[in-house]
Amino acid sequence: MMRVRAANVLNIAGGLVVIGWPFAVWLALSYPHLHILLPLLALCFVLRLAALRGKTGALSRVAQALAAMGIILTLASVWLREARLLLWYPLVVNSVMLALFGGSLFSRMPLIERLARWREGELSPAAVRYTRRVTQVWCGFFIINGAVSLWTCLHGNLHIWTLWNGMLSYMLMGTLFAGEWLVRQRLKRHHE
């Protein structure tokens, strides 16, 4: 029971790190006396990595790699005294996700199809084509989101970086999730 509770706490902490990252970076860069946040961010990524320990599968390995990259970027920022390195984390996330989703398009089964089969079991040929298309749409999202994230890093305006990476990109991602779910429900009804 205690192990389950600890795992839940670690999962919640990991989720808060992902959501709160842009705002913590904004605070650390905007207010130099808050650079103490950097070691705390590294600790949060260590906790995220600990929560993922022992989990298998492509998505778990990606989450572990992203937590490790968060640790590396945060510790490099502390060691080099260059907190602006933290701005590159969203670009790393988009690049890794693009590689995962895009790479799966060249495999026997794209990532979204694997997830759909895990939840639904056997899929019709139409559903297989749909999952491939959804995987392609997510690749397009990661390309566009990564390009805008890169632009915000290079532009140098911390407020624009925080607005995009801390709010707008999450809103677009949520809209894409919701839109895809609505389309999927409609297609399911049509094919049943």
Rank of each mutant, 00 (worst) to 15 (best):
residue 136 Q to C: 13
residue 121 G to H: 05
residue 65 A to V: 10
residue 83 A to P: 13
residue 115 L to A: 09
residue 142 F to K: 00
residue 121 G to D: 04
residue 82 E to I: 06
residue 87 L to R: 10
residue 85 L to N: 06
residue 86 L to C: 00
residue 113 E to W: 09
residue 121 G to I: 03
residue 39 P to Y: 01
residue 124 S to T: 14
residue 140 G to W: 07
residue 78 V to F: 15
residue 75 L to F: 11
residue 52 L to R: 07
residue 115 L to E: 13
residue 152 T to E: 09
residue 62 V to R: 06
residue 120 E to H: 13
residue 90 P to I: 02
residue 111 L to R: 10
residue 99 A to R: 04
residue 82 E to K: 10
residue 155 H to F: 10
residue 67 A to L: 01
residue 47 L to A: 14
residue 154 L to F: 11
residue 157 N to D: 15
residue 69 M to D: 07
residue 110 P to A: 06
residue 80 L to C: 03
residue 148 V to I: 11
residue 48 R to P: 07
residue 57 G to Y: 07
residue 51 A to P: 11
residue 96 V to D: 02
residue 94 N to M: 12
residue 61 R to W: 15
residue 99 A to M: 09
residue 128 V to F: 04
residue 64 Q to S: 14
residue 119 R to N: 12
residue 94 N to K: 04
residue 100 L to G: 09
residue 128 V to Q: 07
residue 80 L to Y: 13
residue 135 T to P: 08
residue 107 S to F: 08
residue 72 I to P: 06
residue 149 S to M: 03
residue 151 W to H: 11
residue 87 L to A: 00
residue 67 A to E: 01
residue 107 S to P: 07
residue 54 G to D: 07
residue 122 E to S: 14
residue 47 L to Q: 02
residue 137 V to W: 12
residue 150 L to H: 07
residue 77 S to E: 02
residue 79 W to L: 14
residue 114 R to E: 11
residue 55 K to I: 04
residue 99 A to Q: 00
residue 79 W to D: 11
residue 93 V to T: 03
residue 147 A to T: 08
residue 116 A to G: 08
residue 48 R to T: 05
residue 99 A to H: 09
residue 153 C to Y: 00
residue 68 A to V: 12
residue 119 R to A: 11
residue 59 L to K: 05
residue 147 A to K: 00
residue 83 A to C: 05
residue 34 L to D: 13
residue 130 Y to D: 12
residue 112 I to F: 12
residue 35 H to R: 15
residue 34 L to T: 14
residue 91 L to I: 10
residue 126 A to S: 14
residue 49 L to N: 02
residue 44 C to L: 15
residue 109 M to K: 13
residue 71 I to N: 02
residue 69 M to V: 13
residue 143 I to R: 01
residue 43 L to I: 12
residue 52 L to Y: 03
residue 121 G to W: 07
residue 114 R to V: 02
residue 110 P to N: 01
residue 56 T to A: 15
residue 128 V to K: 11
residue 137 V to H: 07
residue 54 G to C: 04
residue 156 G to P: 04
residue 131 T to E: 03
residue 45 F to T: 00
residue 155 H to R: 13
residue 70 G to D: 01
residue 104 S to H: 03
residue 120 E to W: 09
residue 118 W to M: 15
residue 153 C to E: 02
residue 39 P to M: 00
residue 41 L to V: 14
residue 48 R to E: 05
residue 108 R to G: 15
residue 120 E to K: 13
residue 156 G to K: 05
residue 59 L to H: 09
residue 65 A to W: 11
residue 40 L to K: 07
residue 38 L to W: 09
residue 104 S to C: 01
residue 37 L to R: 05
residue 81 R to W: 12
residue 35 H to A: 13
residue 104 S to L: 01
